[in-house]
Amino acid sequence: MNFLFAVFSQAGRNLLQTWRTQILSLMTITLSVLIFSFFYLVYTNALQAGEQLGDDLRLIVYLDEEAVPALQEQYREKILKFDRVERIEFISSLQAFNRFKDQLDEDQDILADIPQDFLPPSIEVYPVRSLDALSRIKRFSDYLQTLPGVIKVQYGREWVERFYTFIELLRIVVILSGSLLVLTTTFMMAHSIRLTLFTRQKELELLHLVGASNSYIRMPFFLEGGLLGLFGSLAGIAALYLLFNWTQLRFAGSALLGMFSFNFFPLPVIAMIIAMAIILCACGSFSSTRKILSR
């Protein structure tokens, strides 16, 4: 009987003998993974939504006079010096007038007697679409305001600030639920394995007496922890997937879902969550057996 076979058969026997405790542990792990991955999914989708909204996010820098090409280059240099941007567009008074005219559509007549340069020229700055860029947008706006020839800087300040606060809040929730997952999983595993060890004191004593090595005794529990982590996290992710699909179906056609596209985790993220749960559970069981065996 080789080592691996011995470990697997021991672990299988342990799981069968203590299936009630194991189911409880499995449910706890499933629930922990579900809570964490739920908030993480909301967070990633909110970030994605932020990026989608960011398509319309721009800073409009109104100038007191038309910028000639040399001045345009100077503005471009100064803007890029402060932050990375996706693009910078210079809008002349005439371009602004034409845009306005197009927006008015059938009511263009009202502009008939108005001079075509009544709107100030401007620079449209499109920041990079990222949460960091969002967090810096106010400072960016303040900086642009200091540039020579700038009359006013406009952007959706209120919306950006609210969105940023929401994302920050979500980030805290994700960190908290992540910590909760780490604590619950490790604690639960350690205690359920310790409970199993206590109920099997006689067997452990016998194993010591017949010369079982520490790894022979410890590895099955380690494997048991890993398996519980694997199945618990798989069940948690599966439950979240069902919940996600149900939400998509339940709210299909709603305005919110129409505005944004919500996505489930990509495979690498799922693999990372599962791996994390396996490692945590295995560590929990390892710490328990180490305490018992060191006596």
Partner: peptide, 24 residues
């Protein structure tokens, strides 16, 4: 005796051989 009460006779005897990684 130090037998494991919930295990079968064969399983009890096998314990001493399993820890020595004897073949099945």
């Amino acid at each position: 005796f130090k037998l494991l009460p919930e295990r079968t006779v064969a399983q009890n005897i096998a314990v001493s051989m399993e820890v020595a990684y004897r073949s099945r």
